[in-house]
């Protein structure tokens, strides 16, 4: 977290990924004009091998592959310490990852423009919250108590 946002840095990519990519890239592009941006790792898209541990015998295994886009940048402005930002997202748009990395650097430092990034995060959080509410509703609407079977009670009669 930073003074600008209540969300921890570990949640920023998720919140930004919940928004239309064009909005994220647009804000990053507008803020980037104030900085010299150096790519510490060339923005790239490819695949990651997803590793799980089975819950029967605790063997690690690979379930399959996932798309990964990643970027790592350093932002430099006049008279300021350089700031690093990075992103790894389940996506195949390297430009989106770079935009998120730029916003990550600005908000983490924080640099000028951090408030705008924080506002964008908040909008992403609202989308995530709405999605979580939908999933919660789906679970609550289908909660079942099988322990009522065989008794006189029947939730269909309520």
């Amino acid at each position: 977290m930073t003074p600008q946002t209540r969300h921890p840095r570990s949640a920023w990519p998720r919140l930004l990924s919940a928004l239309p990519a064009a909005e994220v890239k647009q804000l990053a592009a507008s803020l980037a004009a104030d900085y010299t941006i150096e790519d510490l790792v060339i923005p790239q898209s490819g695949l990651g091998l997803l590793q799980l541990r089975d819950s029967a015998l605790a063997d690690a295994y690979f379930l399959g592959e996932i798309p990964i886009a990643q970027a790592h940048v350093r932002l430099t402005a006049n008279n300021r310490q350089p700031a690093e930002g990075a992103a790894r997202v389940l996506d195949d748009r390297a430009k989106l990852a770079r935009a998120i990395a730029v916003l990550d650097a600005i908000l983490a430092a924080p640099l000028a423009g951090a408030e705008a990034v924080a506002a964008l995060l908040e909008r992403g959080w609202q989308r995530i919250a709405a999605q979580e509410a939908e999933r919660r509703g789906l679970l609550n609407a289908t909660r079942v108590d099988f322990s009522l079977l065989g008794t006189d009670e029947d939730d269909d009669d309520v």
Partner: peptide, 14 residues
């Protein structure tokens, strides 16, 4: 056709 960028750490399905 895509490059392998990483193997994830073991993820917790819990």
């Amino acid at each position: 056709t895509k490059p392998r960028l990483l193997e994830t750490p073991v993820q917790d399905t819990g």
